[in-house]
Design a protein around this nucleic acid. Structure first.
Lengths: 170, 170
DNA sequence: TATTGTTATACTCTATAACTATA
DNA sequence: TATAGTTATAGAGTATAACAATA
């Protein structure tokens, strides 16, 4: 029923006004009070994240890549042969989750696993040539997506905002 | 494997240093480069949201209430007899999702449904006396949770931050 | 005994589609 | 014909637990 949702996070509404802009219905829904919600930091962060997330999903949509995969590819590119446990630690997800993501990426031939010679428990992750090319495209998509939001802020404001957010996730 | 996770969102790590603080392992994991991730607005919002979400889950934990339910109760309290479709619009989730949440709350005797006399399609939502009492407790929990994060900011900074976030989710 | 990777399983949150009853 | 609510189903994202190989 919700329009643009492709994800577990609820749909942001660029059309919040839709309902109100149509002809006045017979028994209109009365306006509601939103209570204390808008003053809560957590509520606002959550709503912002949902707005960003949905835009990102829409942007990545055609590429069938999910946000987590993008982060993973960026890390893999910056760290040739990174161990899966390191990806898990850095992205703050369980290692079992990483295995699933890598499995898919490997099937797509975007990454390969190669056993480490230093510690044979480790399966180093390497981007393939295809993976690198695709990541470059993804980065462009990501930059466009970011721009749609960062342009809401001056350079100073953006620095401030990111600084604030880092205090929350130290 | 991840410690405090009770949720689909990945675990924030107050113990990120754990791995490094133990005795130096035989073949230590090499330090990694995080690439461009920390400069992305979306990445930082997501990480902040996860940190807040996990703390909230932990705080609400014993009460077996989820964050979405809290918002719903606040709205129901501020709007006696609110229609489920209004809850869905305000919280930006599908109406089918709201039905599920209300079903549980009704089983717990925290809310009741009552058919509207104005428009009999509507099932107005009302907090029970029990629901009101529980919500008061929840609010205290929520305030403590919020305080753990808002104290990271001065009053001015907090106003600024919330203002920034509202630009992102208009 | 601890760690890396793996498999199998299950849970939370949410959406989609089709339906009923009312309007 | 449209809207509020409902039901049934599915999917994304993630965790947990148990295990093998290696350290």
């Amino acid at each position: 029923m919700k329009k643009d949702a492709t994800n577990h996070v609820k749909t942001r509404n660029p059309g919040a006004a839709e309902k109100r802009s149509t002809k006045e219905p017979v028994a209109p829904l009365p306006p509601i009070s939103v209570g204390l919600l808008p003053n809560l930091l957590g509520y606002n962060v959550r709503r912002a994240q949902i707005a960003l997330w949905r835009d990102l999903i829409r942007s990545l949509g055609e590429r069938k890549v999910r946000p987590a995969v993008f982060s993973l590819l960026v890390l893999a590119e910056a760290n040739h042969g990174i161990a899966q446990i390191q990806l898990a630690n850095q992205l703050d997800v369980d290692k079992a989750t990483i295995v699933g993501l890598i499995d898919r990426l490997q099937k797509q031939k975007w990454v390969t696993r190669k056993q480490s010679t230093v510690d044979r428990r480790r399966q180093g992750i390497y981007l393939t040539a295809l993976g690198k090319r695709e990541l470059e495209k993804l980065k462009r998509t990501m930059i466009e997506h970011e721009a749609r939001f960062t342009r809401l802020f001056s350079a100073d404001e953006l620095m401030q905002l990111i600084g604030f957010l880092r205090r929350i996730h130290p």
